[in-house]
Amino acid sequence: MKPFLLAAGFAALGTVDLAFIDLRLVPAVLAPATPDAPRVAPPVVPPTAPPLVSAPEKTTMAMASPSPVKEKVEPIKEKAEPAPKAEPAPKAELTTETRSGTVTLHFDVNARTPAGDSAPDLKTIATMLAADPTLQVTIDGHSDRNGSAAYNDELSRQRAVAVADELAQLGVQRSRIASAAHGARAPIAIGKDAESLARNRRVEVHVERRKP
């Protein structure tokens, strides 16, 4: 029925020759159009950007400061210190500005030889005279005020001679030794107590330069 009506419609219009209508196509033409399925817009795919071709990396040469020139440090060679020269032994001298002085030796009561050890002092004097031929020794013997004047004079003389003999034994020439006896006439302590008397019992050895 539908093909007939369609053909009749076309004939009425006079626009289509029925001889050329293929009625087999009519059902397809007259078939109701199926509702369109909702069109889903295809996802917009952004154009793929061409892969970024990184430029060849420029090797950035850091302007490094020039490395310091390493100086060749030579190890410090310690110079061997020269062996100290043997210096002559210092000359024995008495503590005086004029190189002359006095050594005082003390004696016990009525003793003719010095009390204690007088050798170091006499050796010092002998060494001085050996080093300097212009020096000489004067020995003065003394006593305390006890006893007679004659006894004290002889006692003081013997004391001076004893010291002169010790110097001679140490090598001092007799010609360079002079001695004198003073008894109790030249005390250095005025009192009569034991300490003052002990100070006066003495022999004084003077080192002096010979007079021209």
Score class of each variant (00 low, 15 high):
48 T>W: 03
50 P>Y: 01
51 P>S: 08
51 P>Y: 03
53 V>P: 03
54 S>E: 12
57 E>M: 02
57 E>N: 02
58 K>H: 08
58 K>Y: 05
58 K>D: 09
59 T>Y: 05
60 T>G: 00
61 M>D: 01
62 A>H: 00
63 M>H: 05
63 M>V: 07
63 M>F: 05
64 A>S: 08
65 S>H: 03
65 S>A: 13
66 P>S: 07
66 P>G: 04
68 P>W: 06
72 K>N: 11
73 V>H: 08
74 E>K: 10
75 P>T: 09
75 P>R: 12
85 K>H: 05
86 A>Y: 03
86 A>P: 09
88 P>N: 07
89 A>F: 06
89 A>S: 11
90 P>M: 04
92 A>W: 05
94 L>Q: 11
95 T>Y: 11
95 T>P: 14
96 T>A: 15
96 T>P: 10
104 T>S: 14
105 L>C: 04
106 H>K: 09
108 D>N: 13
108 D>G: 15
112 R>L: 15
114 P>D: 08
115 A>G: 07
118 S>Y: 06
120 P>L: 03
120 P>D: 07
122 L>M: 08
123 K>W: 01
124 T>D: 12
125 I>D: 04
125 I>N: 02
126 A>P: 04
127 T>V: 01
128 M>R: 07
128 M>E: 11
128 M>I: 00
129 L>Y: 03
129 L>R: 01
133 P>A: 15
134 T>P: 01
137 V>R: 04
137 V>Y: 06
138 T>Q: 13
140 D>H: 12
143 S>R: 04
143 S>Q: 10
143 S>V: 00
145 R>S: 14
147 G>F: 05
147 G>R: 09
148 S>R: 04
150 A>M: 06
151 Y>I: 00
151 Y>G: 08
153 D>C: 00
153 D>M: 10
153 D>G: 04
155 L>M: 11
157 R>Y: 10
